[in-house]
Amino acid sequence: MVGLIFNRLLVAIPVLLAVITITFLMIHSAPGGPFDYDRVVSSEVMQQLNQKYNLDAPLYEQYFDYLSNLLRGDLGPSFRYPGRTVNEMIFSGLPITFELALYSIAFAILLGICFGSMAALKRNTWLDYLPMTISMAGICIPSIVLGPLLSLVFGIWLGWLPVSGWIDGIPESKILPVITLGTAYAAYCARLSRGGMLEVLGQDYIRTARAKGLSEFRVVVFHALRGGLIPVVSFLGPAIAGLLAGSFVVETIFNIPGLGRFYVQAAFNRDYTMILGTTIFFSFLIIIFNLLADIVGAAMDPRVREDNSK
């Protein structure tokens, strides 16, 4: 178990470092400096700006400066919003993105496991076919289609829910974004938990549990689900990574002031430090979540616990 964690960390750290280095080099090889505004800036001002942000120094020096700042958790100043730091901007968007991702994953897990287990228990009946057909649709329909269509139907035509926004006092405003982001993952969860449950339900220890005279509820909830949900748990790492990336699109569709929309805006504004900082931050989050999912998965499954080579 400790070996597994150590093994994964051993891979994760070089990966993160590689992402930082590639991103840094890409940003610095970009044509045009960060201060190419539309209006002409005098050369003295340019020089002062370059000096202030240490852009005159050789590249390797800037790189090591950046790394040492990074180790202290400082992502530097924003190039486009003078006086604001990348840290401030990330932490103003992060809570919203986290909230969105949290609700979406909760929506996906609850819906997915319920329908997946139901499909497995009622195999080859319409309670199996119907949810599985819907989940196929859920996987295929992308968020850029689902989001605008949902807000067209429920926001504009029916007028039931707000078309856009993410307002704390108004829980209705959060429904459509969460459904848009969560649907595909709910569909995956349903398929995975159906598969996992089918495999487990045929095994001896379930027959033993039934033979002991346990109620069907106990058999399913306490015995079968535990084994049947391992595929779902190991999917959570990639799912959270996907949710964070998906938040770009959903936040853009519904005009939500989260981290993803900041990133897209920074990309448009060519706010290089902001792009660099957010990329690193996102990669860090995603690697951490993958690691956590591996560890949780290993803790649940004795077979993985033994097999450290994987």
Partner: peptide, 23 residues
């Protein structure tokens, strides 16, 4: 295959966005 495993962990959509911005 270790390299492939490691690359799986990278959020590529972000890097592609970056690439489109930079170049």
């Amino acid at each position: 295959m270790r390299i492939v495993d490691a690359l799986y962990g990278i959020p590529f959509i972000i890097l592609i966005i970056l690439l489109m911005v930079v170049f």
